[in-house]
Write a protein that binds this DNA or RNA. Sequence first.
DNA 1: TTATTTGCTTTAAACGTTTAAAGTGATAAA
DNA 2: TTTATCACTTTAAACGTTTAAAGCAAATAA
Lengths: 337, 337
Amino acid sequence: MKKVGLKEIAEHVGVSIALVSYVLNGQAEQKQVSKDNAEKIKKAAEELNYRPNQIAKSLKMLKTQTIGLVVADINYRFSTGITRAIEAEAKKENYTVLFGSSNESEDTFDELVNALVNRQVDGLILVPTEKSQQQIKQLQKWGVPFVLLDRYFPEVQANHVALNNYKAAYDGTAHLIKQGHGRIALFNYQSTFYHLQQRNQGYLDALKDHGIGFQKHWLQEIDNADRVADIQHGLGIILKHPQPCDAAFFATDTLAINGLKYLNKLGVQVPQQLSVLSFDESDAFELFYTPITHLRQPLEAMGQAAVSMLIEQIDHHKVNKQLALESDLVAGRSCRE
Amino acid sequence: MKKVGLKEIAEHVGVSIALVSYVLNGQAEQKQVSKDNAEKIKKAAEELNYRPNQIAKSLKMLKTQTIGLVVADINYRFSTGITRAIEAEAKKENYTVLFGSSNESEDTFDELVNALVNRQVDGLILVPTEKSQQQIKQLQKWGVPFVLLDRYFPEVQANHVALNNYKAAYDGTAHLIKQGHGRIALFNYQSTFYHLQQRNQGYLDALKDHGIGFQKHWLQEIDNADRVADIQHGLGIILKHPQPCDAAFFATDTLAINGLKYLNKLGVQVPQQLSVLSFDESDAFELFYTPITHLRQPLEAMGQAAVSMLIEQIDHHKVNKQLALESDLVAGRSCRE
DNA sequence: TTATTTGCTTTAAACGTTTAAAGTGATAAA
DNA sequence: TTTATCACTTTAAACGTTTAAAGCAAATAA
């Protein structure tokens, strides 16, 4: 089955390639193609099962109708939710999504971005890894349209859409305080990510604003490489302290899941012995014997916003927008009243 | 920042485009390019920050070094695991993955496949939806290399890699029987999928081979559209029956998660009142108060096998291979001994 | 001296499209 | 009759690469 292109159709009908192109691109009457030929061409295209070669089209048009997406790790619930939202929105706008997962590796991130740029994507949606500032700046120099998603760097002025992390953490902490918790631990990754630091800040400010004196061991910073051990160690500390914490606030779903596994192993009752609040969502939160109260990120909205911001950039070039969305507090029963 | 192509480098160095192409493709000595020019060209490419235009390259080479992947639903644990494995393997082989999620819709599946073919992917890895046989046959007619993953159609002779579903279900059931369960329910989707029917068959044969008389209400067929209600209804039946079931075997993770949520709501103790065994894996299985025993699919191996089978097909064309992999039984504590 | 080889470089066509510009024959207007 | 207009069609260049083939000096052989 040799491939059929415009040429084959043209030969079959007995007209020029140009005419075929016009008709098949819906420019039939604009270019005043005779009804007769238009008809024949369409029929032939159908019969011969013509598939336009998008590669050739892209080359000529200098436009691929493709968006590159790099997520941090395809196994995160966040990534799949956002990917799905982006795919759906992109499709509406007639774009295809080329996709890659950096697995939180800076090198992989760089490779992926390069591969996508070489493939002439029209723009990129990026969940950057740590230390990827250089690559981001490079993109700006090259003039490649992109928008950062979820994570961003305050020192790099770029378009982004993210959660209002400060407010989410502040509100989450305030929620716990209002429920009567006085010793609230925060489990967060030890990282240079601004969005995670904002979560710390929101937590700390909420404590302060409510007159609660923060104690240093309440903030447990987890090394991602050793997370299982670190979380266990951290939970040990906040539980065995002379004045044990009465609530644990997890800054991500992955932290919470690991934490809950260990709490199960210890036989610690949630929320009787410890209230639990987490960022993000997870199937596991619903299946835990006590559904976990969590701060849900609006993945749909984030994905949509990222796509439309990107397309605006692709079409009209200069755009300068930073979007911070609000989280929802989804009440489970994991916080003692 | 206007873009730099071979032309710009050629002008900059003062040689022809061909020479630049040779050098940058590592054919310098094969084509006997002078060391001097080779040097200058490499330097210029570096300085000018040359990015090869893969689109142009693909057009000329009639090869895109791209694999199209269509999964059933990006939110499935299976999909992310397999996607990750495929991406990693493809990268090793110097391929990029173009990715889409059909969301179990036949129309979306067709659209995605068409879009990928139009983009001239070198081959496809497909997790087909129900009723996609026609599209599959079409691909065969077009001579597009592809391999089916996870699901396949016995009436369509095509390359595939999948689990040995019959054996997995048979072994799972036998495991429950050996632990002393005598009334085992199977929850499976009501579907035309052969791989799911194989799970039924394995279950039924295991019962028979162990001298257990199957009772009709043990097999609960769930309509995916109404799954929440159907599962609740099904669990009601097997639990309230005069001779209630002592074990529930879920044919997929999604079924199990829904089932466990409802068991939680009912206050049914696992495994004291009901043992639970499931296909697939899930974070939720570990977090449930009783870790759920499950049949783990070898996602890594499946992804790798699919990629290498596909590449073999792309390179050498005629291949005819069907691969059935074995599952692992991961013991939790959800089956009463 | 002329022919051949060697070492290096350029030319030009091709991949499958798009599209501005030019071409053509018929009919209408001058 | 000449010219203009109309209705349609074709030509040909371009997008950025790859690569077979041809080209060209200088060196070597005859």
